[in-house]
Design a binder for these strands. Structure first.
Lengths: 224, 224
DNA sequence: TAGATTGTTAATCGATTAACAATC
DNA sequence: TAGATTGTTAATCGATTAACAATC
């Protein structure tokens, strides 16, 4: 069977989920969310989960979830659901994210400290390997097992570690300067916790954390 | 002209953006993101913005943006773009979010402190009116102009202030207990900064912050 | 077996995109 | 005017949903 592009596919074609072997944007985003829920359910000792339960936690329709997963194989058991651990492995393989990924964290203030001491990134194989701050008072001090470095030390750290991602936990007025530093050092993905708009070259991807934006439309649906 | 539902609409119907006077989910989400970018651009003193520029910052297609906006009126000037301040007012009206909204913040640790001292919520009219922690050592101390209270004081605070939103900035192992507290007090929207999965009644909406999820699929598109 | 849930189809709806006349 | 950008159309693609046979 051919997909809409008219070419034979290396994987079973399903409603355009795959474009020439590459996942469609939406599918990849949803698979990541499934993985997050699976990881948390796994922590609590749960062993199987149904598409219905996954749907409740991800706000993705249960049929959509079954359809997304069945594009890659028959991972479920009828009448039972999906085994969590094997499914996590499958999704990690599909997303090419089974390994460890090193990240550089900018900002050793309250937010940076909160990030370093939490598991939000660690749970998905992300490890903070460098912590940077422009405040000379903080440079040299330690947070957890990390020593705070100057921003200018990023290139040196990147000689030892392959760093593709930088997380900016700095005040909005410092965000652009930090972004410039990490772009210059060759980082390709920036996660921006500040509300500032960042100017970056086209090949660099910026993801901005936007709690207020999510609350705005949640409120809209609450009030109407 | 009728929309796909076959009923006359109180607003100009545009490709199903409006469902019986209520915005479609996707439209409301995008309008919120436009508002965030407009607010930041406004801060830097910019007065007009083109759909192309908005597209770069929101990762929404420029045609989509023009189409979303033109469903509510002709806000732009051909050859120039959109005036930022009036457009913000229009979008706030569409989203019914022109006023101030009070939020309760749980967790007076590093993350809670970072939130209270930043503008991410304040920029969109959200004001933290109550700060709560279960750590008795912290209760009574002050962060900014706020005094840390016991979780059990939430109902009392809600007698003075209408609080629809709670933000949970607590460790994952405390998140469910905090969620139970806020649900019991009648809060309808929870923003969860922890990675924990929360069990809440059907009428309560949970939004979970998921930086790692966004990085997972950003990495996928970087590696493929 | 009986109950539950997957895998899959088909139909509909919303999002995306290119293109371009209108007009500032 | 010339250049730029909106407002709008039309065509395509992906997401959503209900429904249900297959099967654990």
């Amino acid at each position: 069977m051919n997909d809409a592009t008219g070419r034979d596919q290396p994987f079973p074609a399903q409603g355009g989920a795959l474009l020439g072997g590459k996942l469609a944007f939406g599918v990849a985003a949803r698979l990541s969310r499934y993985l997050q829920v699976l990881a948390q359910a796994h922590k609590t000792g749960t062993e199987t989960i149904s598409s219905q339960e996954l749907a409740e936690y991800t706000n993705v329709n249960a049929t959509q979830i079954r359809r997304d997963l069945s594009a890659f194989g028959k991972f479920g058991k009828r009448g039972v659901g999906y085994e969590i651990e094997p499914l996590m492995t499958e999704i990690r393989n599909i997303l090419c994210s089974s390994g460890q990924h090193s990240i550089a964290l900018f900002g050793a203030g309250n937010l940076g400290t909160a990030i370093v001491t939490s598991d939000v990134f660690a749970d998905h194989g992300f490890k903070v390997v460098g912590l940077f701050d422009i405040d000379q008072q903080k440079v040299g001090t330690g947070i957890g097992s990390l020593r705070v470095r100057q921003n200018s030390e990023l290139p040196a750290v990147m000689e030892d570690e392959e760093i593709v991602i930088a997380v900016l936990a700095v005040p909005p007025e410092e965000a652009q300067a930090a972004a410039d530093d990490v772009v210059r050092a060759g980082v390709k993905i920036i996660f921006n916790y500040s509300e500032a708009l960042l100017e970056v070259p086209r090949e660099v991807t910026v993801h901005t954390s936007n709690p207020a934006v999510e609350l705005l439309y949640a409120l809209y649906f609450y009030f109407t």
